Computed example of a mutant assay.
Amino acid sequence: MKINKTNAARLLDKEKISYELIPYEVNENDLSAIHVAANLGENIDQVFKTLVLQGDKNGYFVCVIPGDKEVNLKMAAKASGNKNCDMIPMKELLPATGYIRGACSPVGMKKHFPTYIHQSCLNYPYIYVSAGQRGLQIKIDPNELIKVVKAEVCPLFEV
């Protein structure tokens, strides 16, 4: 099966970062990372979702967390240098990032936003993040992902 490269994959190629594109079956009624992990037969703690938030001081920023977790807004605000923050409205996602819900990759957004990744990513030799289209994940060493998106590793939810 021929897998078309996404912008995220092309950007990783350009940076000479090793990764794998892993296809999965899309369920339009369930775009959750939990569905993706089950479909891939992978541990949900290794399938990360990409969330875009807006802070009261610093504007948009990105949080990358395990798929079954909820971002703690206080912790995300603190990490990003904001007093408060919230998820951006769905209608702002595509114009801000170039990605749609269920296919938002931390790699290759329209412009670079400050990115924060949960520290648990370092517990694994590889994690999955969206490749920028529904039905496709990037399997990547978390250290390589951190480097390419210039992410800060920090706590983003209560353990």
Results as ranks from 00 to 15, higher is better:
138 I>D: 14
93 L>V: 13
45 D>E: 15
69 K>V: 10
108 G>Y: 08
129 V>M: 08
94 L>P: 03
129 V>N: 11
115 T>G: 06
131 A>E: 03
116 Y>I: 00
45 D>H: 15
32 S>A: 03
58 N>G: 00
132 G>D: 07
7 N>F: 15
136 L>I: 04
125 P>Y: 01
146 I>Y: 04
157 F>K: 07
25 E>S: 13
82 N>Q: 02
66 P>S: 09
21 L>P: 05
29 N>F: 08
143 N>L: 12
81 G>D: 03
96 A>E: 15
120 S>F: 05
147 K>L: 07
12 L>K: 05
83 K>Y: 11
70 E>F: 11
41 G>E: 10
42 E>V: 02
50 T>R: 12
158 E>T: 12
75 M>A: 12
15 E>G: 02
98 G>M: 10
106 P>I: 06
71 V>R: 03
16 K>F: 05
25 E>F: 12
98 G>E: 03
75 M>Q: 12
36 V>W: 02
54 Q>N: 14
69 K>P: 07
8 A>Q: 14
76 A>N: 03
79 A>Q: 06
77 A>I: 06
121 C>L: 06
97 T>C: 10
8 A>H: 14
114 P>W: 02
30 D>A: 00
52 V>N: 10
66 P>I: 08
59 G>Y: 11
29 N>G: 09
3 I>C: 07
144 E>K: 15
130 S>A: 10
22 I>S: 02
27 N>K: 13
127 I>M: 04
113 F>V: 02
25 E>D: 13
12 L>A: 11
70 E>P: 00
51 L>Q: 09
127 I>D: 08
147 K>T: 08
18 S>Y: 10
105 S>E: 01
117 I>C: 09
69 K>Y: 04
93 L>D: 04
150 K>Q: 15
12 L>H: 06
141 D>K: 14
132 G>N: 07
40 L>W: 01
76 A>G: 09
92 E>R: 14
146 I>K: 03
71 V>N: 05
144 E>F: 13
71 V>S: 11
97 T>P: 01
71 V>K: 05
12 L>Q: 06
107 V>S: 12
119 Q>L: 13
70 E>N: 13
4 N>V: 13
61 F>Q: 04
10 R>G: 08
145 L>W: 02
35 H>L: 08
117 I>Y: 12
30 D>H: 01
130 S>D: 04
73 L>P: 11
98 G>Q: 02
136 L>Q: 13
85 C>S: 12
89 P>Q: 07
112 H>I: 07
136 L>R: 09
95 P>H: 09
147 K>Y: 11
82 N>K: 03
85 C>L: 08
53 L>C: 07
1 M>I: 07
129 V>I: 15
105 S>Q: 01
30 D>C: 08
147 K>N: 14
